[in-house]
Structure formats: structure tokens, C-alpha cells
Design a protein around this nucleic acid. Structure first.
Lengths: 207, 207
DNA sequence: TGATAATGAGCGGGCGCTCAGTCGGAGGTG
DNA sequence: CACCTCCGACTGAGCGCCCGCTCATTATCA
């Protein structure tokens, strides 16, 4: 249940359109310079709006950050959900989901990094919402792990599952926020290492 | 080779002392409100100095952030180094180092989080230095993994070691930067899960 | 008494945000 | 059709504030 961001403009379609411009421009600016060093004037200009018009669609600079985070999470969730329709054993599906999640992270490196670095600047309410959206991603892997436990294709203790699911997500996200550390390696080979490491950590039995 | 931060004050002992005050106060402030929302006036006041005096020991606000990061890394490195004197097989020493690193992270949660969230605000030169200090921590685990490979107490491919060492560090740091995700669990039990998960991921043979 | 350290009011500038005013077009009227 | 009215969207100069940093001045010592 995403939070509402209030606006002065009546036409909802126009709001959608303008906010799309705002988000698109802001992702670029925040990625390049960070949230704090980007001015609202820059946001307005890059969105093709005047200073005043920007504030017709948003009540504060933090609103913009929230719109950006929500947009990114929405895309992650949509793309992740589309990978869960595969058949096969839980371990197979887990591997598949890990690979896809990794590719997803790689193709959205800047955006993932952005959320990691800037979400702490969100007001409390917005922050909670963003974190709970993140937990929905974690929940996907929790679910897969539980199914693996059920069909015995992975071997872990039930009580460890929340932590292990978190590991799956973070190990994927590392492809974005630690990319500087292995610049000489190909990204696919790192992804492969990560997937295998995670599967080994849950004693998956299909390698 | 830590970078010099320039000062107007001649007496080195006095510089050391005052900067200790500055770092101590800043760690608290940055932890509570973040780097950007902390003003230099607050830093000066909390350090027991005047606005002007602060700038006798530092040339910019970013200098303060660098001093803070350097201080934290120094403590991490010192405490980690003191855990490496144990005897035994590589796998045993690896497990030991992971546990100690985890405890270290738990006891410095705020500081670790601080580096994660704020180091991106450092000027390029400082940032590189901080990142390379981080790599020294990673190098400790690389070393242990290589020794494990040599005495066959772990089973991985040489080419994966850099990535796996990075995993070890990040899985430890998760205790700090994902603490909100498992608030109901005891920290020791999470630590245990993490250590076991990592050892399994490198097929360690001493469990 | 001279060098060094500390003071704190204040400068310059930039920032988030506002608001009096303009524009344009949908709709009403004769 | 010409004309007028009205209202929602948009403009951009500018307000008020605060922040990083400085420097003329004062205090403190050897």
C-alpha cells in the first residue's frame, strides 16, 4: 500500500505524466550527484518544469526522493515476480530466481545503489514504506527456501530462513554496491560465484 | 598510508588531543543525524571548541568526516588483527576470525553503519583511501581462504576467493546495516547463522 | 613580549520553497 | 461566430533562513 504524495493538480493523468518526468530526471541527477547535492532547481529544469510547477506535483524535495524509491522498487518487484512462474523443484526455482535477481541488479546498478545510499534521507513514514517494500523482495526468497525445505532439496533449519533469505538479497545487491571491488572480473562470472555460494550455504542438492 | 589532514596548529600533541575530541563528538552527531544534517557549529560545540577553533584543526567539514572514517577503520583493523594469532587449521582460524569479526561489527554497529551511509560524501581522494582500508579487511579473509585451500580444509576455486572474501565481510556487516530486519532474534543467533552459512558456502570441513 | 591558540560575530552565497501574476483554453452567451 | 468569463496550470523573481567558513580581536602562555 504505497503512500500518497499530495499534489495541487486536479487531473490525475497529468499528475502521472509529470511525475514520470520528475522521476526520470531525478534518477539521473541523484545517481550522478546524490540527493543532497542536487537542488530543486536542477530537478525542475531537468524535468522540463519551472521551480513553481515542480511544487504543484510534490510538497517537498523528500517527496521526490520517495517517488524515485517507489518507482525503482516497483520495477524490481515486477521484474522479479515475472521470474517465479517456472516449474521444477524448489532448488531449481531458487537457482533460477537467484540468477534472474542478479541480472536484474546488474541492469539496475545505479538505481539499487541509489536506494542504498539515499533512502536514509527519507522522512520516517516514507522510510518505513520503502523498507517494507524491500522486505517483500526478501519474502520471495523466504518462500522459495521454505518450499525447498518441504521437498528436501535444500537443508537448513527453519529458524535460519529469514536470515538466509536476507543473505540472498544482499549477496545479489553486492553486485551493485561492491562493483568497484572486482572491476577486473566479468560480471557474469561474479554472479555465478554468488549463486553457487548461496546455494552451497543452504546445502542445496542440485548442483 | 593515511592521508594528512592539514592544520594551523604547531604542537602535534595538541592536534592529536583536539582531533580526538572532534572525532568522538562527530561520531555521535553523525550517527544521530547524519553527516549532511550536522552543522559545523554543532560539531564545534560538541567538541568543546569554538567555530573558529574547529577550523584550526581541520580545513573543511569533509576533513572531519575523513577523520571519523579513518578512526573507525583503524579500530576495526586493530581489533581484527588481534584475532589472527590463533593456532590450528585454516578452517578453524577462519571460523574464529568470522566470529570475532561478527562480534566486532555488533559492538560497533553505529560506526559501521556510519561508514556505509556517509563515506560517499567524501572527496575523491579521501574516498579512495577509505575504500582501500576496507580492502585491507577483505584481504584478511582472502588470506585465510587461501590458507584453507592450501591445507584442503576448504574447497573452492582460487578465482572465486576475492568475491568470497568480500562476502565474508559483507555478511558480517549485515549484522549492522540490516539489524532492523530481525529485531526479534538474538544477535548471537544471527551471528551463528551467518558464520555457518559462510563456512558452508566455501565447503569448509570442520563442522 | 612575542608567538601561538582561541574567540565568535558576521560574510557571502545558496538553498528550499512561495506567491502574485500570466497564460490558454473550455464553456457559456447573444 | 465573436466575445467574455473563469479556472486550473504554470511562471520565475525573490523571501527568509541557514550554513560553511573567515578574520579582526583577545586570551594565554613560555
Amino acid at each position: 500500500m504505497p503512500l500518497d504524495v499530495s499534489t495541487q493538480v486536479k487531473d490525475p493523468e497529468r499528475v502521472r505524466l509529470r511525475r514520470e518526468q520528475i522521476v526520470q530526471a531525478s534518477v539521473r541527477l541523484f545517481t550522478e550527484k546524490g540527493f543532497h547535492k542536487t537542488t530543486t532547481r536542477e530537478i525542475a529544469k531537468a524535468s522540463g518544469l519551472s521551480n513553481g510547477a515542480l511544487y504543484e506535483y510534490v510538497q517537498s524535495k523528500e517527496d521526490v526522493l520517495y517517488l524515485v524509491c517507489r518507482h525503482i522498487h516497483r520495477e524490481v518487484r515486477n521484474r522479479l515476480a515475472s521470474t517465479l512462474t517456472e516449474p521444477g523443484s524448489a532448488a531449481k526455482r531458487l537457482r533460477h530466481a537467484l540468477c534472474r535477481f542478479g541480472e536484474l541488479v546488474l541492469s539496475m546498478q545505479d538505481e539499487i545503489l541509489l536506494i542504498y545510499q539515499e533512502s536514509k534521507s527519507l522522512p520516517r513514514l516514507y522510510l518505513h514504506e520503502v523498507l517494507s517494500e524491500e522486505q517483500q523482495v526478501v519474502a520471495v526468497f523466504e518462500q522459495l527456501l521454505r518450499e525447498g525445505l518441504a521437498d528436501q532439496s535444500i537443508l537448513v533449519e527453519e529458524k535460519d530462513i529469514p536470515v538466509l533469505a536476507e543473505n540472498a538479497v544482499v549477496m545479489g545487491q553486492m553486485l551493485a554496491f561492491r562493483r568497484w571491488a572486482w572491476k577486473q572480473k566479468s560480471t557474469e562470472s561474479v554472479l555465478n560465484t554468488q549463486v553457487n555460494a548461496f546455494l552451497a550455504s543452504v546445502h542445496s542438492t542440485t548442483d
